[in-house]
Design a protein around this nucleic acid. Sequence first.
DNA 1: TTAACAATGAGCATTATATCACAAAGTTTT
DNA 2: AAAACTTTGTGATATAATGCTCATTGTTAA
Lengths: 227, 227
Amino acid sequence: MVKKLIPPQATIRRLSIYLRYLNGLDVDGVKVISSHDLARRLALNPAQVRKDLAYFGEFGKRGVGYSVKKLRDHIVKILGLQKMRKVAIIGAGGRLGTALALYTGFERRNFKVCALFDKDPAIIGNEVEGIGNILSIETLPQMVKEKGIEILILTIPAAAVKEVYDLVMLSGVKAVLNFAPFKMLSTEDVDVHNVDLTTELESLSYRLSLRESGIAPLEQPLSPEAE
Amino acid sequence: MVKKLIPPQATIRRLSIYLRYLNGLDVDGVKVISSHDLARRLALNPAQVRKDLAYFGEFGKRGVGYSVKKLRDHIVKILGLQKMRKVAIIGAGGRLGTALALYTGFERRNFKVCALFDKDPAIIGNEVEGIGNILSIETLPQMVKEKGIEILILTIPAAAVKEVYDLVMLSGVKAVLNFAPFKMLSTEDVDVHNVDLTTELESLSYRLSLRESGIAPLEQPLSPEAE
DNA sequence: TTAACAATGAGCATTATATCACAAAGTTTT
DNA sequence: AAAACTTTGTGATATAATGCTCATTGTTAA
């Protein structure tokens, strides 16, 4: 590898997908995989797989492919997943908040939900097994500092975003994953990532309409971010 | 407008975002909005907003901007949201399935959750308020036909995907929104859209790592699909 | 009614992303 | 140990998405 280019965001998302698939292969005892096989399973172009990886180094062996274990470890390092990331959820009283708080999949990937916040006094203080008591959002900045929370997951109603916006942005947290149906903007200090479940459904609806009007059935694979 | 181009997938996702913002404006009594203001609020380029809309027609008025109500109605039509879309959830017993089943935001956007499925006999038959009893996934093809279900939301564990895959793909449903951490591929008949919550967190983790290593702080806005 | 202003729509330029195609490197077969 | 095959890594190319610019159209003020 000669020149260092900055990888597209889409590449990062695919790395995460590769990682998950590699974990599965490893469990199944597969030792080596080629870009071709990887690409086929994930409906991608083999060259794209290789290029995605080549942004970060030369991990493969010509004539052979990629060592599943080694590649997995490299991707873990690239994505910064060796060290546990501390996460907190705001809107812990809601259904989505609860679902995410109790989802065990995050921990398996080295994200630790270590605090829950809500603004509803009726549930503040309630204990959630394995995490702790639900805290008042007023205490957010303090807890971020105390516990070393890096990422905040927002699962609050759209209307509540305005209320907590300043609190969140000034809390000292470095990244936000926002599920509220209200687009939050990133700033110099805080990297915001918006996920909108309704948008996902509406994209599908658009494609259904296309088919109904008979214009274009599934002419292209779905976009990266969504996979 | 002269030539008809097919709009990028990213455009469709943005239309959904525009739509939500326009709804908010309408509630606030705003009558007209310019591409400039729309873009500023959503951290986009004004030209991009105009281009997104221009794929579908000329909705604006020069010197004025876009009528909030009219533009909203146009986008509703473009996305195929005039008619109610029937949705079912598989994995209704899980936390995410429950959260989505009871989320009222979908209905507000014209998606009706009209059936819930699970494979666990212990909960099949349980009633969920406003929707009905949890059904066995064995009955999926039959219910899809009976109820006219168009979209399936999968909130099952990764391991369960293989089990239900054929059932889902042959059920007669037209689109799938898959939350299971296992990438499902689209086919000729079924449009699959994968959403992976872990990938969202891992993208953030990558960006945190970048900052830690001091290489590049927030050099670019986050990807479309994710906003 | 004319001049100054505002904002769209669209062609063009630029940038970003994905794919092709092949030399280089490694493996297997004969 | 040579020939036939496999698969990577990468420069070149193609495609797609984004952003710039400005003529055109419409509005408002004088």
